[in-house]
């Protein structure tokens, strides 16, 4: 299954990446090659095979509903690339520039 440059561009938006030439062209080629290799799986008959999302067949790991101390705000915000005294700051979520 080949992937087109257009599809790669669309996926890059979905993945919130920005690919410019020549990266876009290179990515298209490399993803295409990997997908071609992956098509190998088409030859496996998986009818009636249960998917296996996880190696463990364990269930039910819970914690009790107890409040644990939170991070001090200063420590929580310490790694923020942009912040004020109380909050993280990001470009406007409303889409204004």
């Amino acid at each position: 299954m080949a992937i087109t440059r257009d599809e790669v561009e669309k996926v890059s938006l979905l993945a919130r990446l920005l690919l410019k030439e020549p990266e876009l062209e290179q990515m298209t080629g490399q993803l295409g090659a990997v997908l071609e290799y992956i098509a190998l799986l088409d030859e496996v008959d998986t009818a009636n095979v249960e998917p296996m999302a996880h190696p463990l067949d364990v269930v039910d790991a819970f914690r009790d509903d107890e409040v644990q101390p939170s991070l001090d705000r200063e420590r929580a915000l310490a790694n923020a690339p942009n912040r004020d005294d109380e909050c993280y700051r990001v470009p406007a979520v409303l889409g204004v520039t």
Binding site: L19, V90, T97
Partner: peptide
């Protein structure tokens, strides 16, 4: 939007 461009640039430059 500015926010989406921030995401895309940060991720493309950071990874």
């Amino acid at each position: 939007s500015a926010l989406i461009r921030m995401y895309r640039c940060s991720r493309s430059e950071g990874f």
